[in-house]
Write a protein that binds this DNA or RNA. Structure first.
Length: 585
RNA sequence: GGGCCGGUAGCUCAGUUAGGGAGAGCGUCCGGCUUUUAACCGGACGGUCGGGGGUUCGAAUCCCUCCCGGCCCGCCA
């Protein structure tokens, strides 16, 4: 009915500047009705003039302006086709922030995540993830079994790892555990299950009852849609593949007639078996362009975030089909820009991916959530080599929340977003957590002894004297992350204290200097004194200071460089240091 | 070819909603911490805000245009 221009349905609502501000013509009917009642009653945390420092508030405003009925439904979803990487996390984390804001405003909110698992497996993935989320190659599983199942729904293909009921269930379980690790409670919904229980029956009936309408609308977006097009893909009862050739529709019986024909995928052909049969509305699926709007209808979706790949394809056609065929209003959309990993596009086939377990090996969950709290529309790069920069930014963001940074813009953003980032909306922290700078944590990661780590952190002033035990433990947890980072990247912090004496030899004068230093340490001195004595000893023996330090690094790290040596040695067990300096153990 | 999104310092990013000082952290350089050895402190250097044009007293911000990158207009999420 309401024939609004596509401009008004732009999913780029965080980019539109002053939308509706220019044209007097269309501003009246869209904004006028919704605004009057409830705009003034929005969040108390907002400034009165409607400015928002946090994008999730902008989205929440838009959702509220449509007068949704509780519970508000926020959806995300992916096809469980293979390795879920950090890019897919957008689908849950973006919704997490919007859900949090809406709950804070007093709404009941459900966050639903669909596994679009009735889609067919179109080609063999090059990489898979095992039940622990670790990436493995196709050679580690029965690739032949997968190859024989091309064209079948993911839920009809056995789990390559033999643990769950299907390929889809395997990857859906990984997605759920990813969300849980990030502290995001989501309701998982299986598309296959929704079809099986009849949830899509009404939508399928509506679509197949209005073939002319579907063809006319969708034909404006897809050239392949012609007078013969039928928007339903039955699953062949003979061979189990998803087919595309429907020859007749029987609305009374709620069935379709089909012929199992070939499926073209990327130049390859998945052969149909030629079987001719009958399928019910539950024994097939809608094509994506219609299935997406049907999900909005079935799940009553109020908001959905999606990648920019959908923005100019299935979103505009989905909006149109929702209104003209299904008779519903589409949800509030939000497009997120893709991020790059180390400057390159995420690509599972090229191996340029990082999974949630992998990122959580080097980052605390709050830091990952912080990354996804940043503006969704900005092009950004996630660089593992310099992940310390991201952590530094998080620490600064956290300090800003506690009023410790002279940066009004950052402080406004932090005051609003921080409680959601740390998952403490209802009882925000009142004391700033103790944090070790990430690179300092990497230095501590060079040794295993927890007591050593804590001593050194205290000596360097990173842990206040009155910090409670739990805060200290939480701070030291970062050391394991930073150590994993150093090992993964092999960077300048990737040193390990050598438990065994490295196989080394020194010139006589260097050896004599080491013996003198050993005597000094044995006499009992602190790290600062040892550091100073190293210079004295080198001078006494007329050797280059650089050579002497290098000898020390060779003995303790079997390397030519390392951390500030004297103070480091001062924290280690004295007997160990003395013996090592004497090259005895 | 058409449409959409993105482009701010060497790096990672704020600032674009609401036009007014071009900013932060890191890196680099210099200096300090008795003594060059990656942790700590201070300072400096560093940008045609992708280019050009326009509106304005004033533009990173609004308009036009061009360049570069990504995405969509086939399939698929």
């Amino acid at each position: 009915m309401t024939d609004e221009s596509t401009h008004d349905d732009s999913p780029h609502i965080l980019s539109d500047r002053g939308s509706g501000g220019g044209d007097a013509g269309d501003a009246s009917d869209r904004d006028g009705a919704g605004d009057a009642g409830d705009v003034g009653a929005t969040s108390d945390a907002d400034e009165a003039d409607g400015f928002h420092a946090f994008w999730a508030d902008v989205i929440a405003d838009e959702v509220e302006s449509r007068d949704p009925t509780d519970p508000i439904v926020i959806k995300g979803g992916v096809s469980p086709s293979g390795v879920a990487h950090l890019g897919n996390v957008n689908e849950v984390m973006r919704g997490y922030f919007v859900a949090g804001v809406l709950r804070e405003r007093g709404h009941e909110v459900r966050q639903v995540f669909t596994s679009d698992d009735k889609d067919p497996l179109r080609k063999l993935p090059r990489k898979l993830a095992n039940p622990d989320g670790e990436i493995v190659g196709l050679g580690d599983v029965d690739a032949g079994a997968l190859g024989r199942n091309l064209g079948k729904p993911y839920t009809a293909i056995p789990d390559p790892f033999g643990e769950r009921e299907s390929y889809a269930a395997h990857f859906a379980a990984l997605l759920r555990s990813d969300a849980e690790r990030l502290g995001v409670p989501v309701e998982m919904a299986s598309n296959t299950a929704l079809y099986a229980e009849g949830a899509f029956d009404d939508a399928v009936r509506t679509v197949l009852s209005d073939l002319d309408g579907v063809r006319e609308t969708l034909g404006q977006y897809q050239d392949k849609v012609d007078g013969e097009y039928v928007p339903f893909n039955p699953v062949c009862s003979a061979c189990g593949t998803v087919t595309e050739t429907v020859t007749d529709v029987d609305l009374d019986a709620e069935t379709v007639e089909y012929r199992c024909t070939d499926l073209e995928v990327d130049g390859d052909t998945i052969e149909g078996c030629g079987h001719e049969g009958t399928a019910t509305f539950r024994e097939g699926k809608l094509p994506w362009r219609l299935e997406w709007p049907a999900q909005w209808d079935v799940l009553d979706v109020d908001f959905e975030a999606f990648g920019k790949d959908h923005a100019e394809g299935s979103w505009p056609s989905g909006v149109d089909l929702a209104r003209t065929v299904l008779g519903i209003e589409p949800p509030v959309p939000m497009v997120y820009e893709w991020f790059t990993l180390g400057g390159e596009a995420l690509s599972s086939s090229a191996g340029n991916v990082i999974t949630v377990p992998e990122i959580l090996a080097v980052l605390e969950p709050a830091v990952v959530r912080y990354f996804f709290a940043l503006h969704p529309k900005r092009a950004r790069d996630l660089d593992i080599e310099r992940i310390d920069q991201l952590v530094d930014r998080f620490d600064r963001f956290e300090r800003a929340y506690f009023g410790g940074v002279d940066d009004p813009a950052l402080t406004r953003f932090a005051e609003r977003a921080y409680p959601f980032v740390v998952g403490r909306v209802d009882d925000p922290p009142t004391e700033k957590p103790v944090r070790l700078p990430y690179t300092f944590a990497a230095v501590l990661g060079m040794v295993d002894d927890p007591a050593f780590r804590e001593r050194l952190a205290r000596d360097e002033g990173h842990i206040p004297d009155d910090a409670p035990k739990s805060a200290v433990e939480a701070a030291l947890a970062r050391v394991e992350k930073a150590r994993n980072w150093a090992e993964r990247t092999g960077n300048e912090y990737d040193y390990r204290l050598q438990a065994e004496l490295p196989d080394v030899e020194f010139a006589d004068d260097v050896a004599a200097a080491l013996d003198d230093l050993a005597d000094f340490v044995a006499a009992g001195h602190d790290g600062e004194a040892i550091q100073g004595e190293m210079y004295e000893t080198a001078r006494d023996h007329e050797i280059e200071i650089a050579d002497f330090f290098q000898a020390g690094y060779r003995l303790f790290f079997d390397d030519t460089q390392g951390p500030r040596l004297g103070e480091f040695l001062g924290e280690l067990e004295r007997e160990y240091v003395v013996n090592r300096l004497r090259r005895e153990a």
